[in-house]
Amino acid sequence: MSPVIEALELTRNFPSRSGLIGAKRDVWALRGINLSIARGETVGVVGESGCGKSTLGNILLGLDSPTGGGVRFEGKYLHDFKGAHRRAMRKRMQLVFQDPFGSLDPRRSVGAQIADGLRNHDVVPGSETDAEVARLLTLVGLDPSVAPRRPSQFSGGQRQRIAIARALAPRPDFIVADEPVSALDVSIQAQIVNLLADLREELDLAMLFISHDLHVVRHLCTRVVVMYLGRIVEEGPAEQVFTDPRHPYTQALLAATPSLKRPAGEMGDVLDGELPSPANPPSGCAFRTRCPLATEACAAGVPPLEHIAHDRKVACIRAELTGGKGGLQ
């Protein structure tokens, strides 16, 4: 199946300066990212804060421009579209935010905010806008009569449903969900995860699901990419990556995730140290400073993301040693 959206050698750096007279230095948020997402597919992006996962989402949506590389939507480069054409493209791609309290305009009714997407792109004739808003609210499990209310009258979970209805209004083909459930309570989180899973099937959406909750990613996603310091270190079908992780970082991440199924006190090996500064990453493999398997060769060059099976890739030169360790139960 041809991909809806592709990232080709995406690179993004943010210039920064330490102090007033410090040396200028680039912070590398993304380096050489290749990724493609097809219809009906949900790709999970996992990694710790600062690994570049939100930047990736913004660039795929065209809300931020890459420093190098490009994004192709249905075969056409996003950077070829400007002004009104670019705005017309926006209809096809939408975003769901993490914070349900900040993502809705507190001063306008939720119905009006959902209708914005319809009116901007003339999705339905003007006379049918209200009916379409009602349909969207029903789709996300809310009563259509709530349309005239302000966001402050809704709970966190209800707001997230409204935000999803707003994202669905222009009938997008591709959705980026940036930590959509991490601000919600567990029982509400389950409602939203189920909703996203249903919508993906009903509407045949391509979805990028950014999260640091590995359990949610495993439950919802078909494919997963693991990022560390701006690079993809492992990629593959979600079930395989979670049961048989091959990159030492993925293994450490899984071991660090508390689980109800694991007997208490049997937490795996806890990774020492912290994420290095993206302004001053280690030479060679960025993970080598925390890696239990690191050798001198790891400092020599950045390990390429190579196929270890038909649909699995790992960026580790010692990947042959890592099989059969520490999956999620």
Binding site: R90, K91, L95, F97, D99, D105, R108, Q113, A167, A169
Partner: peptide, 21 residues
Amino acid sequence: LDFVKAQEAMGTHPLKILART
């Protein structure tokens, strides 16, 4: 703020975002 970014993502004209949001 996120709700302004949401308007951008929705392809709303910048002047409309300024006036309405």
